[in-house]
Simulated scan of single mutants.
Amino acid sequence: MLGQAIRSLLFYAVFYVQTAILAIVIGVTAMITNRRTRFGWTLALYWIHSHILALRLLAGVKTDVAGEENIPPGPCIIASKHMSDWDIFAILPGARRPAFIAKKELMDIPFFGQAAMSFDTIRIDRSLGGEAIPALMEDARRALANGARIIIFPEGTRKPPLAEHDYKWGIVRMYEELGVPVVPVALNSGLFWGRHSLVIWPGTARARFLPAIQPGLPADEFRERLVSAIETGSNQLILAAYDEGLSRPISPELREKLEALKQGIAPDAAQTPTS
């Protein structure tokens, strides 16, 4: 436990120092050019791959991403489960020209905000509630017109493995109004790098891009298919990791859910998604 905690702290030191330096460089470049540049994207890819390497060497977390062939060649929305900061490393390279949906407050961080905006980041002001949707849609249309693929975490926040899901209606509004395919993404990263966790546990974090949901479905049918794809896929990846053996401590609550999953009982089988 102590040894893994030290390894995790070493990774965090690399992660935060390097992120700060690269944010300043990309942010300054963005302020000068006022647009996305090949130089900025090259640094972003370096940020991703260097931290994937650091995770493996320092914390013992391997990365396994598959299914990129399911991403359509044109504009689309990539809708992913969100358990960990690792998810960004997994999704960004496959998106090729990503446009994240992010909280407006993040754009106020010096340099980081300028760097994020240079990558077609779509701002959402949660304090406005439903009134934020028109501005979000305008930014989303701009990003798609620029050739970007929009990345969204439909639950809006990181969730622990097998926690009750909570898919917002924003993704449904985007699906209806933007008229592009939606690619679900399943993952199990929270088993190894959890939300607010100081210790990162060894193992293989996996993400899977699943077959795209084509535009034109009724809203309720789309939402049901999206939730089913992401939750079923994520549960399968979590169960596979559990069967392989986990080095992390497992709480009685999580073990009960994992054992139920082995018996074919989905954690949210009796739950209805909330708005």
Score class of each variant (00 low, 15 high):
Gln4Ala: 09
Ala5Tyr: 10
Ala5Leu: 14
Arg7Asn: 05
Ser8Asn: 04
Ser8Cys: 05
Leu9Trp: 10
Phe11Asn: 11
Phe11Ala: 11
Tyr16Asn: 15
Tyr16Ser: 08
Gln18Met: 13
Gln18Leu: 13
Ile21Leu: 15
Ala23Val: 06
Ala23Trp: 12
Ile24Asp: 05
Gly27Lys: 09
Val28Ser: 11
Ala30Tyr: 08
Asn34Val: 04
Arg35Trp: 04
Thr37Ser: 12
Trp41His: 15
Leu45Phe: 05
Tyr46Asn: 11
Trp47Cys: 08
Ile48Phe: 04
Leu53Met: 13
Leu55Ser: 07
Ala66Met: 07
Glu69Trp: 01
Ile71Tyr: 01
Pro72His: 02
Pro72Gly: 03
Gly74Cys: 03
Asp85Gln: 07
Trp86Phe: 11
Asp87Gln: 01
Phe89Glu: 05
Ala90Tyr: 02
Ala90Asp: 09
Ile91Arg: 02
Ala95Gly: 04
Ala99Thr: 06
Phe100Cys: 14
Ala102Tyr: 03
Ala102Val: 14
Ile109Pro: 14
Pro110Ile: 05
Gly113Trp: 03
Met117Gly: 07
Met117Phe: 03
Thr121Pro: 03
Thr121Ile: 01
Ile124Asn: 05
Asp125Gln: 09
Gly129Val: 10
Gly129Ala: 12
Ala132Pro: 11
Ala132Trp: 08
Arg141Met: 07
Ala143Thr: 04
Ala145Asn: 11
Pro154Lys: 08
Pro154Val: 04
Glu155Asn: 09
Glu155Trp: 05
Glu155Ala: 07
Gly156His: 09
Pro160Asn: 11
Pro161Thr: 06
Pro161Lys: 09
Pro161Ala: 13
Glu164Asn: 11
Glu164Met: 10
Glu164Ser: 13
His165Ala: 10
Asp166Ser: 14
Lys168Pro: 03
Val172Cys: 04
Arg173Glu: 06
Glu176Phe: 00
Glu176Asp: 14
Pro181Thr: 00
Pro184Trp: 00
Val185His: 03
Ala186Ser: 15
Gly190Ile: 03
Gly194Met: 06
Gly194Cys: 08
Arg195Ile: 01
Leu198Ser: 09
Ile200Ser: 00
Ala205Val: 10
Arg208Asn: 01
Arg208Leu: 02
Pro211Ser: 02
Pro211Leu: 01
Pro211Asn: 02
Ile213Asn: 03
Leu217Val: 02
Ala219Cys: 08
Asp220Pro: 05
Leu226Phe: 07
Ser228Leu: 07
Ala229Asp: 09
Ile230Phe: 00
Asn235Val: 00
Gln236Cys: 05
Gln236Gly: 14
Leu237Asn: 03
Leu239Tyr: 04
Ala240Thr: 11
Ser247Asp: 14
Arg248Gln: 13
Pro249Gly: 10
Leu254Tyr: 10
Leu254Gln: 12
Ala260Tyr: 01
Leu261Asn: 09
Ala266Lys: 13
Asp268Thr: 13
Pro273Asp: 04
